[in-house]
Each structure stands twice: as structure tokens, then as C-alpha cells.
Computed example of a mutant assay.
Amino acid sequence: MKRRIRRERRLAEISELECCVIRVAPDAGAFCWQRQFEARGHTVKVIVPQGVKPFVKRRKNGQNDAEAICTALMLPNRKFVPVTSEEQQDIHTPLCEPQGRR
């Protein structure tokens, strides 16, 4: 899928897809999204940031980040972050709100 999805429509759009594997780069909200996507039947893999960083272009934006993730995922020996529970994430992140920005 190569189209822009607004943050407020993300869950609705993902819910309409057939169950698939979704791969994301880790950030503060990645694990919250992971739990919500998995609750809707999808499999979510969070790639390690060191695997994505070499492929990020100069201007940092969502499209360039998505391209870097896709490029990193084509490599044969990619590594993923283990699943993080809500309790584990609360130790590192004080607030987990995927519906709105902080």
C-alpha cells in the first residue's frame, strides 16, 4: 500500500485491510499501534532502528521514513524488536496515546 493515511483514520483504514504483516520502525507510539493492530488480527513486526538509519534520506518526513523501512526490510538478515507489553512500555514512556499527539 503506497498512500498517505492521516493519523485519525489510521485504525479505520488498517481495520478494513485483510489480515497481513505490518512492519514499522520503533518510536514512542510504535508499540501502542502494534497492540491495536494485533487486536484487529494483523501481525506486526517492529524493525530495529539501527537497521533503518542507513537508508534514511536527508529530509526527514513520513514518506522518506517509510521508504527507508521498506529498503531495510529487503535485506536478508533483518532484526526485529521483541514485543513490548503495556507494562514494560510504561516504564520507558509516561503516556501511550496513539489517537492524538502529545
Rank of each mutant, 00 (worst) to 15 (best):
N64G: 01
K2C: 05
N64D: 01
R59I: 05
V46E: 07
C96S: 11
T43E: 15
Q50C: 12
K2Q: 08
P26C: 06
P26Q: 08
R6V: 11
C20G: 02
V44Y: 09
R35C: 07
R35N: 07
G41T: 00
I5Q: 06
K79Q: 15
A30T: 05
Q50S: 14
E97K: 01
E8N: 15
R35D: 06
N77R: 14
S85K: 02
P98G: 13
R58D: 07
I69S: 05
P76T: 15
C96D: 12
Q99F: 09
R59W: 06
C96Q: 13
C96E: 10
E16S: 12
E13C: 13
P98R: 05
R59A: 08
D90S: 00
P76N: 15
R58W: 07
K2D: 10
V46P: 06
D90P: 00
R40W: 00
S85E: 04
Q63M: 08
V56P: 07
E67V: 04
R9W: 14
F55H: 15
P82E: 05
F31H: 07
H92L: 15
E13P: 07
R23L: 03
E18F: 04
L11Y: 02
F31L: 03
R10H: 08
V48G: 11
Q36T: 04
V56R: 14
E86D: 04
I22K: 12
Q34R: 12
Q50I: 10
E8L: 15
Q63T: 07
D65V: 00
K57L: 11
R59Y: 07
K60H: 12
P54W: 11
I22M: 12
R10A: 15
V24N: 00
I47H: 02
R10K: 10
D65G: 00
E97W: 01
T93D: 02
G100F: 10
D90M: 02
P94D: 11
R6K: 13
L95K: 08
T84I: 13
R9E: 15
P82Q: 03
M1P: 03
K60R: 11
Q36H: 05
K60F: 13
E13N: 11
L73A: 12
P82G: 03
C32L: 15
M74N: 07
C19F: 08
S85L: 04
I22F: 14
F55G: 11
I14H: 06
